[in-house]
Design a protein around this nucleic acid. Sequence first.
DNA 1: CCTCTCACG
DNA 2: ACGTACGTGAGAGGT
Length: 614
Amino acid sequence: MQTYRHTIAGDVITVNVPEDLDDLMQFEDWAAEASRRGPIALDTETTGLSIFSPGYRLRTVQFGDAHTAWVIHYERGGYFRTLVQNLLSVPGTRFVIHNAAFDWLVLDKHAGITLESLAPKTTDTKILAALCDPRQAKEGGTGTGLKPLSARFVDPSAPDTQGDLTSVFNSLGLTKETGWAGIRLDHPTYNLYAGLDVILTARLLPCLIAELESLGVRNVLSQYEHEIARICAVMQRRGMVLDEEYTRELDATLAAEAYEYTEKAARYGVENVNSTAQIAEALEGMGEVLRERTASGAVKVDKAVLCALADVDLQWNRLDVRKPNPLAVAVLRSKRAGKWRTTYAQRFLSMMDAGGRIHPGINTLAARTGRMSADLVQTLPSGDAMIRRAILAEEGEVFVSTDFKAVELRVLAALADVKRMKEAITAGEDLHDYTASLIYGPQFTPKHRKLSKGVGLGKVYGGGPDTLSRQTGAPIEDVRRAIAAYDRVYPEVKRASGRWQREARGSGMVYISAIGRRLPLDRDRAYAVVNYACQSTARDVLGQSMLNMEEAGLLDNCRLPIHDEMLASVPVGEAKEYAREFEKCMTFALRGVPIEAEAEIGGRSWGSLYGADF
DNA sequence: CCTCTCACG
DNA sequence: ACGTACGTGAGAGGT
């Protein structure tokens, strides 16, 4: 047995690293005893973060309580492996994990322990921490990482070992990326680090439970978040089919386009199309006047500035108000091709698993409002189907996308009890149509509706005329008229904003959402409470729908939640029936206000829902 | 590591 | 007193 001692919060703790069968039997005895006392802290060390990439390995599995950690070298196989699998399969043994979804998926994929079996036995300290304070560290919160939480609740010096391990990697000629796979399994710092993490997790649990108790956060909210985490982990494990051949062609096409326009930009003296300083200098040399500045005082050279010089709107439609500047055109095209290639095509290929699938990681509590985020696919272009075309439904299936209808506005109508909004919704009127008629009169066009949608949403979140006009492209006079009309028609919104801000000030600048979620406000932008309340409740409306989907047997079809939408893969012959089922799961009343959804049936590729013909 | 830019809801 | 859009992930440049 290798044994390490360390001090945490004044206590000497022990990290045991079993080396033979006798050591493992001691571990077994400890585990039997520890599981009777309470949940066992659990963690894994692996070769990296992309669980589904070829060659990925599970290296160690750690177990522990507040004073003792056991680092089991799973990679050695044999008894090391079977003992871990046995312990994780014992009925009734509970575990506490920090960021459980990651370890669930690692153990599911690489140790044969299904997430369906492990999730019901798990408490996730990251979820508990997010329910105490959902803010990231840079937003003024504690953050929800194990280290910052341990520093606050357990021991201020707890995070120091992290830096030690990075310097060990460096001293071995390894980096932050290669270190996890390359370091020797018996390296002392590696094992100490691995052991400390479970001890910190074990110590964090009672602190966070006490914190939640004192803040009055109900246990059902925590249980609900654990269900959502499990459901999203199932979707992440499934992943989506990548059209590899198409993606490779796309990569080549975008490379050629980027090359062509980078060359053109170079003729005007711009060596690097991503350097705003170079572009500004070259444009000014051509006689263009650049008036806009960024917050830090630099010349602003963004898409809006370049589009104006290229005589196109933000959707690249020709404006015909000036002669297009050829450098602006070249920079726009080169930057877009380059970004789309690296951020989408190449990233898809690099993240593809051995079966040709990609697995977007879902963070179920990413935003301060509780909104989820997904890596890899959250922000694929929607105006052009080229990128989404690379992602496919299952063989013999098609994509169905079911969207809520104006969910944030319906939530607002429910929360703030907005009379005319509720009447319009109940009467089956389209809220954005209604806004458009307020601004443009009954003869409004589809383009008017689109502008009105932006104005309507921006307005309720506190946007002013300038911002709303800039964001939506609607003329400023129209925006002013819309704002005046809004305040007349929906006076309850402003009143609710004031009331919610007062409530928050009375409880340490925290607004408590409809389901009891704590939403901290920034003192100097308390008006954001309207956005927080709507965004957060809309997130939980989607969360409730996801529980409904699992109940209806649709979880295996679900692929990705996207704020107000569920993307699903369904058998081509039964698409209509599935579409109705998804709509049903996303339809219910919120304080008497109907929440409704509409399914769109596409083809095999995700791009088919955005205009692609496949 | 911070800033800027750009993609989405 | 008045007015303020909100929330993400990701790549590249520059300090």
